[in-house]
């Protein structure tokens, strides 16, 4: 059998280069499309998370304000006064004879410095 005509030069070779280029281009296009879809999905997922988080934050802020308003009302003078009037809180004014006042610290007239335990010079008898 004469196979001389089947030389490499004349064989109908599979041309890999254009195939590879085509596959590469198609792959790039496919990956880009998939990537685009994936990014879009991620965007939607993130957007949904943002929406939920925003809603939760709004809800928390709202609850916070409701609680702040409640605390303000319950600690208001009007409310406390009414509690005192209903004897739910026992409050008495401090009479003057029950107020103890500390004597203001004495200062040396020479330098106007306040005398404290730290800067008071010990007397001679104390040093002995």
């Amino acid at each position: 059998m004469n196979l001389s005509f089947l030389t490499i030069r004349s064989a109908n070779r599979i041309r890999l280069r254009p195939i590879l280029i085509t596959v590469a281009v198609l792959s790039v296009i496919l990956c880009t499309a998939l990537g685009f879809v994936s990014i879009k999905l991620s965007q939607h997922a993130v957007a949904e998370e943002i929406r939920k988080t925003e809603r939760a934050v709004t809800r928390l802020r709202s609850e916070n304000e409701v609680l702040l308003a409640a605390v303000t009302r319950l600690s208001s003078r009007q409310h406390l006064t009414s509690l005192v009037a209903q004897s739910k809180i026992a409050a008495n004014y401090i009479t003057a004879d029950r107020v103890a006042r500390l004597t203001p610290p004495a200062s040396d007239e020479g330098d106007s410095a306040t005398r404290t335990a730290l800067n008071t010079v010990p007397s001679r008898s104390a040093t002995r």
Binding site: A69, T72, R73, H79
Partner: peptide, 9 residues
């Protein structure tokens, strides 16, 4: 959302 003004006293 809305709000009302309150005066606790």
């Amino acid at each position: 959302n809305d709000s009302i003004r309150t005066y606790p006293n």
